[in-house]
Computed example of a mutant assay.
Amino acid sequence: MNYTLHQLQVFLKITQTQSITRAAEELHLTQPAVSIQFRNLQDQFEIPLAEVVGRKLYITDFGKEIAQAAEKILNEVHAINHRTLAYKGHLAGRLKISVVSTGKYVMPYFLADFLKLHPGIDLVMDVTNKTKVLESLRQNEVDFALVSVLPEQLQIEKVELMPNKLFLIGNREQTRHHHLPHDKGIFEQVPLIYREQGSGTRLVMEQYFAQQQLTVRKKLELTSNEAVKQAVIAGLGYSIMPLIGIRNELGAGELQIVSVKGFPISSTWHLIWLKNRRFSPVAAAYLQHLEQEKERIIQERFGWLDLK
């Protein structure tokens, strides 16, 4: 056997994502590079690690056992690195955070200074939809989660970060040529593009429509904030989107905010964690940093949002 740590890391990511393409994206590697590492690992075993049925990749029972062993090995390697840094007096370890998809425009700014202060900390940040974020929190797989809608079924503690403002948006041609009302009646006329079930943005939209007792024209359902933006830019419909995620497109004139009475509608970004969770030294230090620095970060990084 002559497998490498890199091969084990690649294979573990493939088992987690069930996809070579997605593993490549999350590891920031090319798909051919991931395929080569996987093939080199497979060549060392006579028993298949995975099978392709149709066009879908399935991990075999043997492959799942190898993945479990790989995870233990990689965790031990990380532990060695962290202990070495700790012995030198540095704060070291892993900080695990799960972030709803639109939160990728928020969370990095609340992490950057902390990670610069403590280079011995490894960040593991998963960006996904609200349902998966809360499941990772429920399973105690992460230290913190960033959400814009608080869960009702979990006992949590939280730090409020900042408001999340949502506006109705269309593309330049739509907003220029369509003569639409500027009250809630607009939602009964325009085709709307939704995020998928489990999205926090979608939940805020649906709560607003329910409160206003509106019947809306649902045009499309897409699985990412970026996909919704591109669909609106292409003229496929309108959507309600967080301002935090459309700054560049507004600046370029590709998207326009549609004036509607009662808008923006708002939620609030919260960093949450399970109640009574015992923090690692890294997680405790990060929470202390956030409490001390969040107002400065908001002013420096998000002043353009006009959060008052």
Rank of each mutant, 00 (worst) to 15 (best):
H6F: 04
H6P: 00
Q7N: 03
Q7Y: 04
L8S: 04
L8Y: 05
L8I: 06
V10L: 06
V10F: 05
V10E: 07
V10K: 06
V10N: 07
F11G: 01
F11C: 01
L12K: 08
L12N: 07
L12H: 07
L12C: 02
K13P: 00
K13T: 15
I14G: 02
T15C: 15
T15G: 08
Q16A: 11
Q16F: 00
Q16C: 00
Q16E: 15
Q16H: 06
Q16I: 00
T17K: 14
T17N: 08
T17R: 14
Q18A: 11
Q18H: 14
S19Q: 08
S19E: 05
S19V: 10
I20P: 00
I20L: 14
I20A: 11
I20N: 02
T21K: 12
T21W: 02
T21L: 08
T21F: 06
R22G: 00
R22K: 14
R22H: 09
A23P: 08
A23T: 04
A23E: 07
E25H: 09
E26W: 06
E26K: 08
L27R: 01
L27T: 05
H28G: 01
H28F: 11
H28Q: 12
H28T: 07
Q31D: 10
Q31K: 14
Q31I: 15
P32S: 05
P32E: 04
A33W: 10
V34M: 11
S35V: 08
S35D: 09
S35K: 13
I36Y: 09
I36D: 04
I36P: 00
I36E: 09
Q37N: 14
F38L: 15
F38Y: 13
